[in-house]
Design a binder for these strands. Sequence first.
DNA 1: TGACATTCGTTGCTTACACAACAGATGTTG
DNA 2: CAACATCTGTTGTGTAAGCAACGAATGTCA
Lengths: 191, 191
Amino acid sequence: MSSKPKEERLDPRVKRTRSLILQAFDDLLAQKEFETITVQDVTDKAGVNRATFYAHFADKYALLDAFISQKFRQEIEKRTLNACHYTPENLKNLIIAVCEFLSKMHSGCVQPHQQFESLAEGTIKNILFELLSLWLKQTGTKISTDIPATVATWAIYGLASHYAHLKKRPPLEKFVDEALPLVAVNLEQFA
Amino acid sequence: MSSKPKEERLDPRVKRTRSLILQAFDDLLAQKEFETITVQDVTDKAGVNRATFYAHFADKYALLDAFISQKFRQEIEKRTLNACHYTPENLKNLIIAVCEFLSKMHSGCVQPHQQFESLAEGTIKNILFELLSLWLKQTGTKISTDIPATVATWAIYGLASHYAHLKKRPPLEKFVDEALPLVAVNLEQFA
DNA sequence: TGACATTCGTTGCTTACACAACAGATGTTG
DNA sequence: CAACATCTGTTGTGTAAGCAACGAATGTCA
């Protein structure tokens, strides 16, 4: 395999700046609502010029997108689900990961805003679809993976969203054991 | 008073880079001896280019100098001795600060190197002299402060060095109470 | 001794960032 | 309504940092 400089060998200044901005945004989210955070707030805390912010993100919504994306990918990588293939066991862990992530988001934020949530939904579903497509393609199947991956993506996100919104959440294990077969049945052909 | 941009309003990039280098050096000192640390080691850990290092420090000895200077100044500021005037009480606290700083240096470093120590001595005495001169001048005296400040500087450093090298160090309070009058007598006219 | 490897300190060139200033949008307040 | 303030997104220009390459000094090993 040749070199894959998709994100690895990046100018140190770029990595540093992005990291500073994301960290500052993380800190600010812990103490203010997303709506009330200005670009200036972020860049001040990051120690970065405001103009530099716009060299990295289109606006603060793009930042939120990158933020959620980063956090969710970390959750995936923590469970080593990023470099594996489809099995019912991995699928179960993936569902657990999404449930926990959304649950954390709901308890972490001061208020669950609609704008915030719908943006997160798109971001997370994109990553889910990308990951599931990878899993299915690695089975070496000749069948198109788009349809099954799409169905599974929406199902998983829907389950996790439902779980996170429950007033009294049941034990996660129990919830997932019950839901898993309904998702797995669509992917049986890849097992 | 007009603006005093001696170190405050510095280009954020400069502050950032210096901070990264100093922090990396601090980390490295905790696990390697000063002699075995290369400039490359520092810049690698700091995530900074080697050429950039030389834009900030002449060599690794200049870095060591800046490092000790920073640490010592922090020790001074922690005790709010940086913005006050001469009193026997403040003098006592200053002596305590130097004693503790040198003691920490001796136990913190893997080995107390001669090169390391003599460089530290010059650095610390410069800061001491600068601080004492400020204290004495704030009394509004018309007498030249250079001689008294010099004597006090050398005396304080000598005391602290002596204390730090003791095999069995007595309680610091006791040591300083005994030594204080000998230094204070030279500064009585400013009390 | 000579061949090889590190580390150093410096250089020319490119790229990312800082900064000030701008016009436009939005939102107070009297 | 006008006057004011704040935030946005963009631009031109100066400067710091990245990078590759260099010669020189030092050290290591055969």
